[in-house]
């Protein structure tokens, strides 16, 4: 497997604000990228753009493997996991209902579900409605999705922030296993991840770049 994701000279805007200007990035199998930078610099926006939720203002995001370029729709619907700030759990449904729905919706098999529950020690939470879970527990339930449906590209938005020390170890092991299987991780972080990553520090574009973007 030799998947690679390429950001070619991309610029991202939010409203009239230019967040990211002329960013180039090449990520290949087994790479882990830490996106760092101040609050509001555009880390989440960049992750959402890579996930294909919207197109960049300028430039191109593409993916390819040994068989050549990958269709963007296939990239989004088969190869990507996105874990955002929100944990995407309906408050009135139980953890088990939500995880089983995710497994069916993402076309995963039953064994993966069992494995994820075991790996993340979720069985005490399965019967609880998700509104009763703490922030850290919700994040653990979100992590289950990464194991339930096997997809090579993980886009993680501050994955560690609500977790306690033990759970951070579990999550770190999970990510390292994924990398050694040839996966890709792009994570927005404030505290560095506990393993070796390539750090991409985002900064605000200067005023002249802002003006150029507005003229466009």
């Amino acid at each position: 497997m030799s998947l690679s994701v390429t950001l070619d000279n991309i610029s991202l805007r939010k409203g009239y604000n230019l967040l990211i200007s002329n960013l180039n990035l090449e990520v290949g199998s087994g790479d882990a990228i830490s996106l760092t930078g101040q609050n509001g610099v555009g880390k989440t926006t960049l992750l959402r753009a890579i996930a294909g939720f919207f197109s960049p203002h300028a430039g191109k995001i593409s993916a390819s493997d040994a068989g050549g370029p990958i269709d963007p729709v296939r990239f989004r619907t088969e190869l990507i996991h996105y874990l955002g700030h929100q944990d995407a759990l309906s408050p009135t449904r139980t953890t088990e209902q939500e995880l089983r729905f995710q497994a069916q919706y993402l076309n995963a098999n039953e064994n993966n579900y069992q494995f994820a529950v075991q790996y993340l020690n979720l069985s005490p939470l399965l019967d609880l409605e998700t509104r009763l879970l703490s922030a850290g527990q919700k994040r653990r339930v979100s992590f289950a999705r990464l194991l339930i449906a096997q997809r090579p590209v993980w886009l993680l938005d501050e994955p560690m922030s609500p977790l306690d020390a033990d759970q951070r170890d579990v999550a770190a092991r999970l990510m390292q296993d994924h990398l050694s299987d040839g996966g890709i991780i792009i994570a927005a972080v404030h505290d560095p991840l506990p393993f070796e990553t390539r750090i991409v520090h985002l900064t605000r574009p200067d005023i002249s770049a802002q003006e150029v973007a507005l003229v466009d």
Partner: peptide, 16 residues
């Protein structure tokens, strides 16, 4: 509205 606020569309859009 509910699914929008819960962020569920992030999963739905990554499905088939």
């Amino acid at each position: 509205e509910r699914d929008y606020e819960d962020g569920l569309f992030d999963i739905l859009r990554l499905g088939p």
